[in-house]
Design a protein around this nucleic acid. Structure first.
Lengths: 219, 219
DNA sequence: TGTACATCAGTGAACGCGCGTTCACTGATGTAC
DNA sequence: TGTACATCAGTGAACGCGCGTTCACTGATGTAC
């Protein structure tokens, strides 16, 4: 799906034994802890090993470099966040209900990020380097496609490309809002979520309205 | 204003001679070029020196590390982007005119970023590490404050904190949109800008409306 | 206007350190019969 | 069920490299008289 970038970040070996899976988990949790303590930039494979009580070749068996570790952490976080989406149908004809869904989605995504060790640091890392940025972008694209499908099922006449653009922007802005909640901890979280909910609901509403459909709920 | 973080990124010496200023410019432009070629992560002071044809102590006279260089680049970019704001009054009672202003602001900010060497890479770097994130956040806060002042001048009864939250979110989402334009180069730029313009206009509109003011233009 | 001197700008060479990476190895786990 | 063997998982020690940083220095620029 994504074009291969220069520094390879694939797993070296698929783990065969339980012990092996435990080691991988240990590497990931150690990396997360270090990420919180010293940040992305000073993180290194050697430090992860020290933290995990392993020797470098042990880590090296599974990951070729720190980006590969972070890629795994990033994919797990994105997966955890996106899993919320699949729990129910978010977009319905009832716009007021959709608004509630969007609000809940924002709040729950923030919760998941808080609950994930080093969650916000992982999110930030996903801006730092092209390889990691791709993890983020791929995830956002998947979500946008998923939402586009839901929209098109309800309003089949809407132009697909147009719908995708709207949803893709909405996803981006949703995540930007969430990062801002963490970055601007002095601001009132609820006010921000409320504004963002309004914006994203409007975004959907505009898409529908501009495509020539009337919308029942247009308070 | 900002709390001092551990790694110092201040200039070591203020340049006294013209030659000195030229060297600083050379360092910054070399760093920008490298940023485009090899990215943030592989950037180092040694490489910047090699690119600039200087020896390390020459760079070291002005910058203690690569973050200090990037901080300067980041501040210059943000300054260039924000300069657009001060050119005219963006927010007026005429919402349709405000909409046009927002659209123009997005487009021009994209232009400035494109025209700045390594502009988008600098923007991305401003997510990578706390020191650099602060450059971004400080800039966003300044812009949000500026817009809040304009809003309050026109509608003095609006709650100040509420206005600031709205503007701060708007600024964040504006920049997120711009980064997305670069990251998702396969999407149609104009469609994205159009949607974002609508969203940000609505954001303002909602702020005014929810504070109990009627708005003439509510198409 | 010229000269002597002070300050500023950049050099050349060197350093210790932690990084990523690899090697041949030992020990642990799983499996065939 | 027990044993012999193959595969998998992790160790210990070592490496070359580029990093950030510093030193005493030379040369360039500006200034006082």
């Amino acid at each position: 799906m994504t074009t291969r970038l220069k520094p390879v970040t694939d797993r070296r070996t698929a783990p065969h034994q339980k012990r092996s899976q435990q080691t991988v988990d240990l590497i990931l949790s150690s990396a997360a802890q270090l990420l919180e303590e010293i940040g992305f930039e000073r993180l290194s494979t050697n430090l992860i090993c020290k933290q995990a009580g392993l020797t470098p070749p042990a880590l090296y068996r599974y990951y070729p470099n720190k980006y590969a570790v972070l890629k795994d952490l990033g994919e797990r976080l994105m997966q955890g966040q996106n899993a919320l989406l699949e729990e129910q149908t978010w977009i319905t004809r009832d716009l007021e209900r959709t608004r509630e869904s969007i609000r809940a989605l924002l709040i729950d995504t923030i919760k998941v990020t808080r609950a994930t060790p080093a969650g916000i640091w992982i999110m930030r890392s996903l801006h730092a380097t092209p390889i990691l940025a791709n993890v983020r972008l791929d995830s956002h694209r998947v979500v946008a496609r998923y939402l586009t499908d839901q929209v098109l099922q309800l309003w089949p006449q809407i132009d697909q490309a147009r719908a995708f653009h709207h949803m893709r922007l909405g996803v981006e802005l949703g995540y930007a809002t969430i990062e801002m909640v963490f970055d601007e901890s002095e601001l009132d979280e609820r006010t921000i979520v409320e504004s963002a909910t309004d914006l994203l609901t409007r975004n959907l509403q505009d898409l529908i309205a501009q495509s020539g459909f009337g919308v029942a709920d247009d308070r």
